[in-house]
Design a protein around this nucleic acid. Structure first.
Ligand SMILES: NC(=O)c1ccc[n+]([C@@H]2O[C@H](COP(=O)([O-])OP(=O)(O)OC[C@H]3O[C@@H](n4cnc5c(N)ncnc54)[C@H](O)[C@@H]3O)[C@@H](O)[C@H]2O)c1
Ligand SMILES: NC(=O)c1ccc[n+]([C@@H]2O[C@H](COP(=O)([O-])OP(=O)(O)OC[C@H]3O[C@@H](n4cnc5c(N)ncnc54)[C@H](O)[C@@H]3O)[C@@H](O)[C@H]2O)c1
Lengths: 206, 206
DNA sequence: ATAACTTTGTGAATGTAATCACTACTTAAA
DNA sequence: TTTAAGTAGTGATTACATTCACAAAGTTAT
């Protein structure tokens, strides 16, 4: 069951299942069928069953899936049964919003340090953190065992910052800058880019 | 050449080409080969050529693509040769960040109105706009010819707000709330969800 | 007990997307 | 002018993803 034997599209869907199952659990549902889950997520029951079958047999014929059990299994599969420490690079407008966003922490993603290249920013306090200079990156990432970097610097600086993160063994990058960064194979990058989303949307709106 | 005869994955990639071509143009490059574009975007030249071939023949054998010409054609294909008017629903922390984000406007996406359900917010001024009450949505969307709705309300309110937008003939939705909204076939929705991105990333980091 | 339903898990079949590989053409150098 | 190198466009091929469809197993009602 190594990572490469599972299609990436399947991995991308697992978090959707996790979210739906969390909601069902919070709503008091104990058991759910692939049919119900499918109508909730607008996908076919067969696809859900096939996706899950890459990882094991979690359901019961004639009945469905135990919500809490399946949720627990999926969280384990995705590595969500532990805490992930992240650092933020760039504490401008977006950086502020990210640090103050309460949505990461309950899911186990903790921002534990913030950096900025501007000496006017360094030393200021944001959301409980002292902003640190980029020179401290190596030391802090290493000491705090940070494995994810969140990049919120201007587009022109993004590639450089990302390379610095990778040099320091950060293996996961969440990039908000509107660029297509070049990263080595063993680095996992995810881009958040609302403009790209809008630009593909308009094709269907014309 | 109707929308449905083009694979959606292809449409999702076109904005990447648009961005890369814009950068090349700004950098003074006149001509680019699928090879070069491919190494810039980390994809195979064949895929780029195949993608473009759905829409026409834009290149010259032995030479490559004229950057400005291809850029113009792609912008036209995507419907980016016009201005798109959008409204924002929910002017909390994220809403503020979105309204003040300078990245939409240069790409032709103009936020022209902001709404909020909280009477304390209504009437306040943000980024040059008076925040309007939800009751005005129908009238304003119609009069200002708004075709895109940007949703930045709490998750619990998102489905309801999205339905209200759709009732008023808004056909494109950019949703920031962490939910999987149900929308009719003729509505185009794009979700921005950094937590989902992180949750699929960790699968590869474990 | 039995019968009528329900639902999973999964090979097989179908559908979709990416890549290959070649022709036709362009450019630039010899 | 001729030759060598480079590139687009595209059918054919290969690889990948989704859906189908059904046996096996569990559930509910009588
Ligand atoms: N994806 C999104 O939703 C979204 C939304 C808004 C902004 N953005 C993007 O996020 C980025 C930041 O936007 P913003 O509005 O916060 O910009 P900003 O100018 O307000 O902030 C950028 C910060 O990065 C710092 N910085 C610059 N170069 C640096 C470097 N080399 N190393 C470390 N820090 C550096 C600056 O000092 C500044 O504090 C931009 O690329 C913008 O396009 C993305
Ligand atoms: N995708 C992202 O990057 C990202 C980042 C931050 C926040 N979020 C999400 O965006 C949403 C907003 O986050 P926030 O931090 O700005 O929250 P917030 O509470 O600061 O703001 C929400 C705003 O929506 C308004 N609102 C509530 N119900 C409404 C309704 N029915 N109609 C109209 N307006 C209504 C509220 O009055 C408030 O002004 C949340 O769902 C949050 O999870 C997403």
């Amino acid at each position: 069951m190594d990572s490469f034997s599972v299609p990436e599209v399947v991995v991308l869907r697992l978090p959707l299942y996790v979210r739906a199952l969390s909601q069902l659990r919070d709503g008091g549902t104990d058991v759910v069928s692939s049919q119900q889950l499918g109508s909730l997520l607008q996908m076919t029951p067969a696809q859900i069953r096939k996706d899950l079958s890459y990882f094991g047999r979690f359901g019961k014929q004639g009945r469905g899936y135990n919500v809490r059990f399946l949720l627990h299994e999926l969280r384990e599969i995705l590595g969500l049964d532990r805490e992930w420490r992240a650092c933020l690079i760039g504490v401008g407008r977006l950086g502020h919003a990210i640090i103050n966003y309460p949505g990461f922490s309950p899911e186990g993603f903790k921002i534990v340090a913030a950096f900025d290249g501007d000496s006017d920013q360094v030393g200021t306090s944001i959301g409980g953190f002292k902003v640190r200079p980029m020179e401290d990156l190596a030391e802090v990432v290493n000491e705090m065992k940070i494995s994810i970097g969140i990049v919120a610097v201007p587009a022109s600086q993004a590639q450089e910052v990302i390379e610095k993160l990778i040099e320091n063994k950060v293996k996961g990058i969440l990039n908000y800058a509107p660029v297509a960064p070049q990263v080595p194979m063993n680095t996992v990058i995810r881009n958040i880019d609302p403009v790209l989303s809008l630009q593909s949307m308009t094709f269907y709106l014309r």
